[in-house]
Design a protein around this nucleic acid. Structure first.
Length: 499
RNA sequence: CGCGGGGUGGAGAAGUGGCAUCUCGCGAGGCCCAUAACCUCGAGAUCCCGGGUUCGAAUCCCGGCCCCGCAACCA
């Protein structure tokens, strides 16, 4: 069985998830569900990044003496929240776990053995905000241009990774594999960084105590990014379950936010090259969105809690909005008002009402039984949908489905089944069969995107649970809805709301 | 010369060389199966500005103006 391995970034647990975190995981979930539906052996990995100074600070701020206890509590919350929001992760990695430490140590030794780690007495400018050393030439008015803060001059013993040694190989890889970094605008950004700015990077800290000790030198801990990136390997068994690791690596898609693209498209592949491990096939960077036109900010108090948003309109409505309204890969805007509009128009009116009217007519004109099968085909719709999903163009995938739904509403208007009921039973049967079969296809295509809705549609169409166990290729074939099957009494999929 | 994203009808967006598209809103009509839903038609856009390339530019190139994100938390 072909596999599909997809990852989300691992998240800092210095606070609870907001809607931006959910967005990343949602995209990963939609992909994972899609490829599961297509019969792949899917592994979706997510988790928490725990060896960070930020977590230590957060623990202190919340009055925890025991950092690990704080992290355990918070990681548990992240796990539960994502689970409750319907993110179907197959693995959840925590970087304070033993299995992660073992894998990181193994990885370190491999890189060390290739001569890419060297010890330097380093005196440099350290920006606490970046959690990284920056160079004199990076400064603007003596400050870190990103954090507008004067960096500290730190002199310490550090281990370095020979990142610059991989410049040419990285550029070659980026050029030879246009699909490696997506979208294209990000590829250009990374390419320019690799070519012009990338330098060796310090991968250990002498001053910090929280983290994984450097193998062979317990006076140092491994730099949080070097440790964190390796989660993508340890989460599937690197270091403790080689069989599983071999099964899933390399990753098919690694989803990241646009802010961490350089770590994932320069440092990470170079680390893998050094360790002699194949590179992920694709790193896809999504954009950021604002809330009602303003940046997400805790001090502005506009950080949206995904659970609250899901409770108001349902998880599927939230999924629909994020996947449809915001072009994946680009920046966008989130607004509860617009979510409400999408709920009323696209979900309640176009999808919900279509389903309801078709089922009602089936009940009325055929006593709730699926009429005799008729010919038809939806090949082009499926093709369009599949292409969009393969390209991570979730909005385009939804568009393909919605074009079918709108066309079905038009078909009803054109055929006027309520008149055919009096004049032409045969044609009435053909029209309704066509509509029911289109709804079945829509339910299938919605499975990865709006899983709850897809399940409701399946049940209303009188299809058993086994329907969704069928092979994808078979399900795509016209005529999957059985003649004479009994459809369920129609309940609105998205009840009209008056708020 | 810090890095990046963007400027398309009233609102929100898609479109990256070939008749300017979609949703909402607005106007008119149709339908009566349906969740006051659905369907049709219409009004409404100098595609930020100025140059250039091209048979042809919203799209490619050059210059400019403006907005936004990263700089305390923050995908």
């Amino acid at each position: 069985m072909e596999k599909f391995y997809v990852t989300t970034p691992i998240y800092y647990v210095n606070d609870v998830p907001h809607i931006g975190h959910f967005y990343t995981s949602l995209a990963a979930d939609a992909l994972a569900r899609y490829w599961r539906m297509r019969g792949r052996d899917v592994f979706l990995l997510t988790g928490t990044d725990e060896n960070s100074q930020k977590n230590v600070e957060a623990a202190a701020k919340r009055g925890y003496d025991d950092v690990q206890a704080y992290i355990d509590m918070m990681s548990g919350r992240w796990f539960a929240i994502f689970r409750d929001l319907g993110i179907t992760f197959d693995g959840f990695i925590r970087t304070t776990e033993e299995r992660h430490r073992i894998g990181v140590e193994e990885f370190w030794r491999r890189v060390e053995s290739t001569g890419d780690i060297y010890l330097g007495e380093y005196e440099g400018l350290y920006c606490a905000g970046c959690e990284a050393f920056i160079t004199e030439s990076d400064l603007t008015d003596g400050q870190c241009p990103v954090h507008r803060k004067e960096p500290q001059r730190i002199k310490e013993k550090n281990y370095f990774f020979r990142l610059s040694a991989y410049r040419e190989r990285l550029l070659e890889h980026i050029d030879a594999h246009p699909e490696f970094i997506q979208p294209v605008s990000r590829r250009n950004e990374v390419r320019s960084y690799v070519e012009r700015f990338m330098e060796d990077i310090s991968i250990s800290r002498e001053t910090m105590k929280w983290g994984i000790p450097v193998p062979g030198d317990p006076t140092q801990v491994i730099y949080v990014w070097f440790d964190a990136l390796i989660n993508y390997l340890t989460g599937i068994g690197f270091g403790d379950d080689q069989e599983r690791f071999g099964r899933y690596w390399p990753a098919d898609v690694q989803l990241v936010g646009k802010d961490i693209i350089k770590f994932h498209c320069a440092l990470w592949p170079a680390m893998l090259m050094s360790a002699g491990i194949p590179l992920p096939k694709k790193v896809f960077a999504h954009g950021f969105f604002t809330i009602d036109g303003e940046k997400i900010s805790k001090s502005l108090g506009n950080a949206v809690d995904p659970q609250a948003a899901a409770e108001r309109y349902g998880i599927d409505a939230l999924r629909f909005f994020l996947l449809r309204e915001i072009t994946f890969g680009e920046d966008g805007d989130f607004s509860m008002d617009r979510l409400g509009e999408r709920y009323a128009n696209d979900l309640a009116n176009e999808l919900g009402n279509l389903s309801h009217r078709v089922l009602s007519m089936t009940a009325k004109y055929f006593a709730g039984k699926v009429p005799p099968a008729t010919d038809g085909s939806l090949g082009p719709v499926w093709d369009r949908y599949d292409q969009a999903m393969a390209d991570l163009r979730f909005g385009a995938a939804l568009d393909a489905i919605w074009d079918l739904l709108r066309d079905s509403n038009r078909l009803i208007d054109a055929e006027q089944p309520w008149k055919l009921a009096k004049t032409d039973q045969e044609r009435l049967a053909a029209v309704l069969y066509t509509l029911l079969e289109r709804l079945r296809a829509s339910a299938w295509m919605l499975r990865p995107l709006l899983p709850e809705t897809a399940g409701k549609m399946r049940r209303q169409l009188g299809l058993s649970e086994e329907e969704f166990d069928r092979e994808y290729e078979a399900a795509r074939v016209w005529g999957g809805i059985a003649e004479n099957a009994t459809i369920a009494k129609s309940e609105p999929l998205f009840p009209r709301r008056d708020d």
